[in-house]
């Protein structure tokens, strides 16, 4: 029973992070129809930026956490907001400089450009005066003392904050996409770019907004990931690549282009991975994810919530 609860807790934590990151993939795919491979690097950037911001902020405040202790409660939200703002700006810049000139180019070219951007971010991040190549520990912004426990499963404030923030951000996005004017514009552009443009929707502005939104969600994902694991790996580490790939798989499994599908897919992938590695074989955790991807695509190519695209002649 305790194993079950523990697995469930871990799987939900990871799954909500996957979902948060998957949203960025799915929104970009929904509008521009290409897999934004640079998205996982924005996640990395978000994680590292929040580390740098948190360290600088605490140094400026004159707080030393080396001996233990927790930062003031408001430091976490400030760091998160700043990291999201920075990554949003970077996402905007990337879209303007790298993807916008390729509007209307073959999709493969945009994809290769995305890979180029990804390589650029990875390798710049590895430079010694940027983030370097060694893992670092993020200052403890939120207490990791046990809040309460169910059976032997300890629930920390940190766990609640990670899952809670992820869910809150997803709900906010849900509201934004389905209940606001800009959200309606995004859905219109995703449905049909040309018609949306003819109906007076500023397509370029909507695309830029999508990138800002997706990148800031990615930054939040990176921040929460860093908090959850407290140690943050170097920018080109394989674990980051896998995180990005799995979030992408989540987006595809849920139905790519579908915002609710991404959330659902993220949780599903998290649960599958968690339960598979606890109860079957921990070494094969990546296999479950990718096998699920292939199975879902073969059985229902549009994903769980997606619609299969019918090609017209």
């Amino acid at each position: 029973m305790d194993t079950l609860l523990q697995t469930l807790k871990d799987a939900l934590t990871i799954g909500s992070l996957y979902a948060l990151i998957a949203l960025g993939y799915t929104m970009v795919y929904g509008i521009l129809k290409f897999i934004n491979f640079a998205h996982s690097d924005i996640v990395v950037l978000g994680g590292w930026l929040s580390l740098v911001i948190a360290t600088k902020l605490l140094a400026w405040l004159g707080v030393d956490l080396a001996a233990g202790g927790v930062a003031a409660w408001w430091v976490g939200p400030v760091v998160l907001t700043l990291a999201m703002a920075c990554c949003g700006l970077i996402g905007f810049t990337i879209e303007r400089l790298a993807y916008k000139p390729l509007r209307g180019a073959p999709r493969l070219n945009v994809l290769i450009t995305a890979i180029g951007v990804s390589l650029l971010l990875q390798n710049s991040g590895q430079l010694q005066f940027i983030f370097g190549t060694s893992p670092r520990k993020i200052p403890s912004l939120i207490s990791d003392a046990t809040l309460f426990s169910i059976g032997d499963v300890q629930v920390r404030l940190l766990d609640l904050v990670v899952v809670g923030t992820a869910l809150a951000l997803m709900l906010a996005l849900e509201y934004l996409v389905f209940h606001t004017k800009i959200g309606r514009a995004m859905r219109a552009v995703s449905y049909d770019v040309r018609t949306a443009g003819l109906m007076g929707i500023p397509v370029d502005r909507v695309i830029s907004f999508t990138f800002i939104l997706g990148s800031s969600l990615a930054a939040a994902g990176g921040f929460l990931w860093a908090l959850n694991f407290s140690v943050i790996k170097q920018p080109a580490d394989t674990s980051w690549v896998l995180l990005g790939l799995k979030a992408f798989v989540a987006a595809v499994v849920g139905g790519i282009g579908n915002v609710r599908g991404a959330m659902l897919g993220g949780l599903a992938i998290g649960l599958l991975e968690g339960f598979g590695s606890t109860y079957v074989n921990p070494a094969l955790r990546d296999v479950y994810v990718f096998a699920a991807l292939i199975l879902v695509l073969l059985v229902k190519p549009g994903g769980i919530l997606g619609k299969a695209v019918v090609e017209k002649v």
Binding site: V252, L284, F290, L293, L298
Partner: peptide, 22 residues
Amino acid sequence: LRLRGDYLAIVTLGFGEIVRVL
């Protein structure tokens, strides 16, 4: 047989990763 374009690409990606893990 069933998949086209991007979806097929994603399956091949999954294949490569599975080979790696195995």
